[in-house]
Computed example of a mutant assay.
Amino acid sequence: MSKPNTVSITCPDCGTPFEMEQWNVIHAQKQPELREKIMNGSMFLQTCPHCGTRVLAAYTCIYSNDEKKFLVSFQPSDKEPAATPFVPDYKLRLEHTLLGFFERIRILECGLDDLTLEMVRYLVTAQLSRQFPEKHITHLLFDNADNENVFFQYDSNNPSEQIQIPLATIWRYEDQLTHSGFRPNIKGYITANDKFVQESGILNCLIPKKQS
């Protein structure tokens, strides 16, 4: 089990330094209390003991789930991780924003194939932006999934307004992706986003194969 590092940060409001714990490695099964903080988004929030200000302190962190075989690395800078861990058959993902870090973990914790989800999200976002230009929909934020649907938020000011996509649709695309034999030309970590969808060739899996 990993142990925290104690660092000093300065409150942006009162200017008083105080100590906080940083967990650079989190194991979902061994540290359920930290998993809960990741899932509810409070992991990087600290309260100044002097004035009570809530401080967002982002730092490099790795979240690992050995049961579902995935690892998500958060790097606040645009730099790649120093090394890729040797974890065969694990999904390795890299995020540079806290929002992306939390979202990626929620997606994978739900047992969804995130590459398929990125492809579907890209296609649905493009379709919605054409159908409803007045809504200025540029990105769908994963919220949760149940036994029938996957739910996305499209307006941060109105999180209750959601788009739902049937799980059956996600699975259909996942089958297409599996049967296509698609393998991204990337070793190690993958940053799964719009750029990945556009450049990886994953959309080619949707093109019907010519009959010989």
Rank of each mutant, 00 (worst) to 15 (best):
I186V: 15
T138H: 11
Q164I: 10
V124Y: 03
I207G: 01
E109N: 11
D114G: 13
C48A: 08
F74G: 11
I137W: 02
D146Q: 13
K37V: 06
G52D: 07
G111Y: 14
G201R: 12
E199S: 06
C61L: 07
P184H: 05
Q31R: 13
A58M: 07
I207Y: 06
K37Y: 02
E148L: 13
V87D: 03
D143E: 10
P12L: 08
S212Q: 09
E67S: 15
N185E: 12
Q131S: 03
N40C: 07
T97P: 02
E33T: 15
D175I: 15
R106A: 10
K3M: 08
T10F: 05
F196V: 08
N158D: 01
F132C: 04
K210P: 03
K91F: 13
R54L: 05
R183N: 03
L71P: 03
D113S: 11
P133E: 10
S160T: 13
I202D: 04
M1N: 12
C61P: 03
K69D: 02
I105G: 04
K68Q: 13
P4R: 13
G181P: 00
P76T: 06
L141I: 05
E19A: 15
N193W: 07
K69P: 05
P49V: 11
N144F: 05
Q29H: 13
R121G: 01
S180F: 06
A168L: 04
K68P: 00
S73H: 08
M20N: 06
L177A: 03
H139C: 09
A58G: 08
N149R: 11
F86I: 12
L94F: 07
N24Q: 09
L56I: 06
I26R: 04
Q153F: 04
P208N: 14
K30V: 05
N144W: 03
Y59P: 04
R54E: 00
V25N: 09
E109I: 11
T47S: 08
V124T: 00
T16P: 00
E19G: 09
A145N: 06
D66Q: 15
E67T: 15
R104C: 02
E118P: 10
I170V: 15
Q46G: 04
F18Q: 00
P208S: 15
K187G: 09
K187Q: 10
F196C: 06
N185D: 11
Q75N: 09
I62E: 00
F101A: 13
N204F: 07
A192M: 02
P133K: 14
E109H: 11
K30I: 02
N157T: 04
H139A: 08
T53P: 01
L34I: 07
V7P: 10
K91E: 14
L45A: 14
L98N: 03
D113N: 15
R121L: 00
I202H: 03
W23A: 10
L115C: 04
Q22N: 14
